[in-house]
Nucleic acid binder design. Structure first.
Length: 657
RNA sequence: GCCUGGGUAGCUCAGUCGGUAGAGCAACGCACUCGUAAUGCGUAGGUCAGGAGUUCGAAUCUCCUCUCAGGCUCCA
């Protein structure tokens, strides 16, 4: 007899040699059908694994993250088998699961490439494999046996050899723990290296779709061969798959590049080159509104406004260390004035250090908070530019705070509160924090400094009471950082503000202040961008709101439509009256049918459409058609609409709220 | 930078076997005068991303460059 403990604490007795599958069957037929794997004492294993007495066990179904993971990993194996059937002699590399899906990397014979049409062929072959109801049979081997099995598979062999030496978590996932090589065999002709577990049979799979082909470097190293990768998604039910595909469509519908064009906000003229945007009048208005609000808040927050030029002699970035670390990411220098090299600035911080250093500073001036909308240029590699989120020219809402070591903790805490509050005003309210620590191999400064900086940031982050995740090794060369991550309206996360601690720049520039002890001291420098870049923040806002911006940020807040052209004069009067309140109002006179003009205004996502006709001219009212509603109000007084707008704008809310 | 796939009117797209350019929307003009998501008619709009080649003839075939998308790598 075997006795196991279930998640609810109860125990279950099974006959000797019973497996996870037997356990599931003993609990109920529905669970037996849903079971994909079993968790034994915290480890995921196959359903076919015999259970040991006293084990803590849990049947894994597709309702859990683990269950979907098993499903997707098994689907990846099926895809590999399909590719090997269609391209005999193909080499297969790794096929892990990722969020919502999986991928698998291959090297095709003759350096052949997958085409989009091949995806359909592979998918058809996968469905055949599913229909064949092939079992996943686990086998364990020694390293030498493993090498023999995969003798003609160089990528698999490399992984097995790596396990003998220094195994990474990724490799162990592919192979297995404890010096054994585990494989899963589907047929005599297809065996894959894998730690497992897998579903019992390919028939358990089926709700998948191959999404796209892409190139990917072997082991992510651009110096190694580029493999052909196929991405797929897989789910337990048809409905879940369809929902996932719908979410992708929704993300596409919100794409800021598409909305930016449709709403006439900005464009990327090819004459300018990749990653260089121009903002049209409406996009320019949005930018101005964001910047004005940000400036006002920074004034209230005790910041001082500075500006700095766009180009500088090389010396500045030599001193700061940027040329040493990031020359690749900077535009090449211009030679001026007999060999002087000038660079476009990729960062604002060294300029702010110079402003700090412009005269003798006293501890009484600290914390000194310098703020600038600073436009920087970074030479992003050609393949990485992406809409407004990854550009070559951008404006940072950058500030650098100089303070004493004693002030550092309080300053960081109030800074974090300031940042979160401002983001909430823009309508983002679901946050978590990420702590990025010392980057191995490219950090400057002593261990003590790094440890202190990391500990300080961590305590401030913890005190903020938000979820905190660790991004080990993700810091900049000069210091660790906290970044605020925000979830948007469709659950995607975006890195927003970053707060970085920096002991290095003040030292490199020999920036000092005179303390109460009449001695020179080095200030701490805190780097902080709130929007990150104005461009990127605009992109995130557009996607978050699907283009339907809150009224205070809408370039055009109100459009006034006359029913007939003899109402035009009244429409202009209403508009003038609202403009005197500072509203952004446009009149569209009656040259086209009303329905057509309403449709146009709706497509432009204007918060309020006002319609004025005979009744309104007579009684001095307006018809109000709010965005997001489908029951326009008639006979509204201009004064009550005015009040509604005042409140909505002051509260930064939207007509649909 | 690398891989895969694109680039035809302002936008979205069609264009067969290589035979010389098309639609809808938008713009402009005229008519229509209308109460909540598309009024009608007309006009104009193109070095088919750019360059070179093959050909009697290229949007179409070949090569190079630019540029966009999806990935990889990178992201101070």
């Amino acid at each position: 007899m075997v006795e196991v403990v279930l998640p609810d604490g109860s125990s279950k007795s099974l006959s000797e040699g019973a497996t996870g599958a037997d356990l599931a069957a003993s609990i109920g037929p529905r669970l037996a059908k849903a079971a994909l794997a079993v968790r034994v004492n915290g480890h995921l294993v196959d359903l076919s694994t015999p259970l040991a007495t006293g084990s803590q066990v849990e049947i894994v179904t597709p309702n859990s993250v683990d269950g979907l993971d098993v499903l997707r990993h098994s689907t990846a194996h099926v895809m590999a088998q399909a590719v090997l059937r269609l391209w005999p002699g193909a080499k297969y590399a790794i096929g892990p699961t990722i969020t919502d899906g999986f991928y698998y990397d291959f090297e095709l014979p003759g350096n052949d490439r997958f085409s989009d049409a091949d995806l359909e062929r592979v998918e058809a072959e996968m469905r055949a494999i599913v229909a064949e109801d092939q079992p996943f049979v686990r086998q364990e081997h020694s390293l030498d046996e493993g090498l023999a099995i995969f003798a003609d598979q160089p990528f698999k062999s490399e992984i097995i050899k790596a396990v003998g030496e220094s195994a990474s978590e990724e490799d162990l996932r592919e192979v297995g723990y404890g010096g054994i090589v585990s494989t899963y065999r589907n047929t005599e002709n297809f065996t894959d290296l894998c730690r497992g577990p897998h579903v019992p049979s390919t028939s358990r799979l089926g709700h998948f779709k191959l999404m796209r082909v892409a190139g990917a470097y072997w082991r992510g190293d651009e110096k190694r061969p580029q493999l052909q990768r196929i991405y797929g998604t897989a789910w337990d039910t048809k409905e879940a798959l369809e929902q996932h595909l719908y979410r992708l469509e929704e993300a596409e519908r919100r794409d800021h590049r598409k909305l930016g064009q449709e709403l006439d906000l900005f464009s990327f003229p090819s004459e300018l080159g990749p990653g260089l945007a121009v903002f049209h009048p409406k996009g320019g208005t949005l930018r101005r509104l964001m910047e004005e609000y940000s400036r006002q808040r920074h004034v209230e927050g005790g910041y001082e406004f500075v500006t700095s030029p766009h180009i500088t002699k090389a010396e500045l970035f030599e001193t700061s260390g940027h040329l040493q670390w990031f020359a690749d990411g900077m535009y090449p220098p211009m030679e001026l004035d007999e060999g002087q090299r000038y660079y476009l600035k990729p960062m604002n911080c060294p300029f702010h250090v110079l402003i700090f250093k412009a005269r003798q500073r006293s501890y009484r001036e600290l914390p000194l908070r310098l703020f600038e909308f600073g436009t920087v240029y970074r030479y992003e590699k050609s393949g990485v530019v992406h809409g407004l989120t990854r550009v070559r020219g951008m404006t940072q809402d950058d500030s650098h705070i100089f303070c004493t070591r004693e002030q550092m903790n309080d300053e960081l805490a109030s800074l974090l509160a300031f940042v979160l509050d401002l983001l909430r005003e823009f309508g983002l309210n679901d946050f978590y924090l990420e702590l990025s620590t010392r980057p191995p191999g490219k950090a400057v400064g002593s261990d003590e400094e790094w440890n202190e900086a990391e500990a300080t940031l961590e305590s401030v982050a913890r005190a903020a009471g938000l979820e905190l995740v660790l991004d080990a090794g993700g810091g900049a060369f000069y210091g660790p950082k906290i970044s605020v991550q925000a979830r948007d309206a469709i659950g995607r996360t975006h890195q927003m503000s970053t707060i970085q601690l920096d002991f290095q720049q003040p030292k490199r520039f020999d920036a000092t202040y005179i303390g109460p002890d009449n001695q020179r001291h080095q200030p701490i420098m805190i780097h902080r961008a709130l929007f990150g870049s104005v461009e990127r923040f605009i992109a995130i806002l557009i996607e978050h709101y699907a283009g339907a911006l809150p009224t205070w940020l809408s370039p055009e807040q109100v459009r006034v439509l006359s029913v007939r052209d003899d109402h035009d004069a009244y429409a202009y009067d209403v508009a003038a009256s609202l403009r005197s309140d500072g509203l952004r109002v446009v009149v569209e006179p009656a040259t086209e049918p009303l329905g057509s003009r309403i449709r146009k205004a709706k497509l432009e996502k204007i918060p309020y459409v006002l319609v004025v006709g005979d009744d309104d001219v007579t009684s001095g009212t307006i018809g109000v058609n709010a965005r997001g509603g489908n029951d326009p109000e008639r006979g509204v007084s201009v004064e009550s609409f005015r009040e509604r707008m005042r409140q909505e704008i002051a509260s930064h809310s939207r007509p649909e709220d």
